[in-house]
Write a protein that binds this DNA or RNA. Sequence first.
DNA 1: CGACATTTTGATGAAGATCAAACTGGGTGG
DNA 2: CCACCCAGTTTGATCTTCATCAAAATGTCG
Lengths: 283, 283
Amino acid sequence: MAQRAAGTLLANFGRSLAFEEKPNLDEVSCVTHLLVRKLQNFIALSEDEQQAILSLPAGSKRLRGRQMIADDKSLKGAICLIEEGFACRHRTLPDGRRQILSFLVPGDLSDLRVFILGRTDSAVSTLSDVSVSVITPEHLLALTERYPRITRALWWSTLVEESITQEWLVNIGQRSALERMAHLLCELYVRLSAVAQVDVYTFDLPITQSELADTLGLSSVHVNRTLQELRRRELIVFRDHVMELKDVAELKKIAMFSPGYLHLRSVPSFDPAQKATPQTGGR
Amino acid sequence: MAQRAAGTLLANFGRSLAFEEKPNLDEVSCVTHLLVRKLQNFIALSEDEQQAILSLPAGSKRLRGRQMIADDKSLKGAICLIEEGFACRHRTLPDGRRQILSFLVPGDLSDLRVFILGRTDSAVSTLSDVSVSVITPEHLLALTERYPRITRALWWSTLVEESITQEWLVNIGQRSALERMAHLLCELYVRLSAVAQVDVYTFDLPITQSELADTLGLSSVHVNRTLQELRRRELIVFRDHVMELKDVAELKKIAMFSPGYLHLRSVPSFDPAQKATPQTGGR
DNA sequence: CGACATTTTGATGAAGATCAAACTGGGTGG
DNA sequence: CCACCCAGTTTGATCTTCATCAAAATGTCG
């Protein structure tokens, strides 16, 4: 099968490439190297393909917190690559109940769906202040038409998103409030580690308890009590929108968390003794 | 944008094509015309492209109910197109709790995900007796490499699946038991109508109440009581695995159902007065 | 300081889970 | 044909988790 072969290829030379180009691109205009890094989780991109992504014309833009991304006219139909901060996808019922469907963290794309589906079926909003790289659909279209392997890699990334959505369905459908919260924290720990946003089990979590409630299908009051229970058990410290996991192994156990569904090539440590993440860079 | 242009094209000639080829293919070996019909929801496929799909070598196969599809060695790595019957995708927690993530009904593909992701992150099982067309990954790969527009259409179909998963997340996260059940029934009504599996608001629903429970994140006892409540209100008749919707408009209202997330080109009637579905064919 | 959002606490109620047992009906084998 | 079994459905009783309502506490920002 095709993707098996690709996996073998990657083991040989993909990883080193990804590391080489990072330093000299970290400071340039756009952050599409985040996208390259992410897609390399799936398939080893050739120099050529990497260069094509890296040289996408992508203007940077800053957005304030609590703002619908689609509302911004300069972003009409554009695809945003999150550079910094948190955003989310969500749907709202006519009577106002709201469900957050996914979090978008640095490196995530905020809306291949419009690109392919032709219309949107869920809103995207910022949670914190966010900076994004803006990619026009035209450029993306050109890219996918020229490079089928990139198309496949982007397709892959949407399927990973679906896998995460499915795990959220398991989470809300089957787990108790405490388990749900623990599971979400484990997921964020792993995903943010993969993009170097975690420092010693600590990461920014710039969202309110009532947004957590809309994420987990709970009331905000119950979210509050669940967080207190986690604090009481000395599993987390959460203050000023900074989350520290004090016992990530226990959280994992409570949540019955297993990171396969995230489809990441490497997963950070869940060993509570070892007080450093294997990823490079801090927050 | 690309998909807008495609939409316009389709309005002109896509529909008629889809109807013409059905009769003469209904009885031949494979049912890939179901796949053509489905993909035409997104993009008008050329004669050439349609023919390429229709002539996929796809052996038919029958499976009994309650059986993991992946377990069948003859299906190792294969992609199954459901021809008849119900299947589902599901995940199970270590302690046995199970969540059904999606239903696969005639016309659905049972696992583009393995094809792209390279491994599976959820199991696929039959619910009823099922017959499938078996497509090998090699043939599918060849098809996508040759026809980029088909690749795009398949990508589209996986995004529609994700849209449905997201709506289920809203369903379980925000709606009450009665609303959840009503919503699921509305969804099945629309999806099954699109593949001519509904006759006057009546369709087969070959699953047990405890499977409904695993779908909706409820206990089976509560599913039973919820169904009784729907019967008491004279909204449904459900016996011997046949579901009849007696007042589809009221169900829609209770569920706050709006079918946009299904991304179907045409949606059956929700008018309770009109006692015939606009779709051709019966069950 | 006062307005406002967010977090926290307490009290009460309801939705739904759990447990247990009875009922139904189809299938099997004697 | 009947007895039995088994899976699924139904019913009742009880218990838990979580929602809801309301108000106080905390913190932030202009």
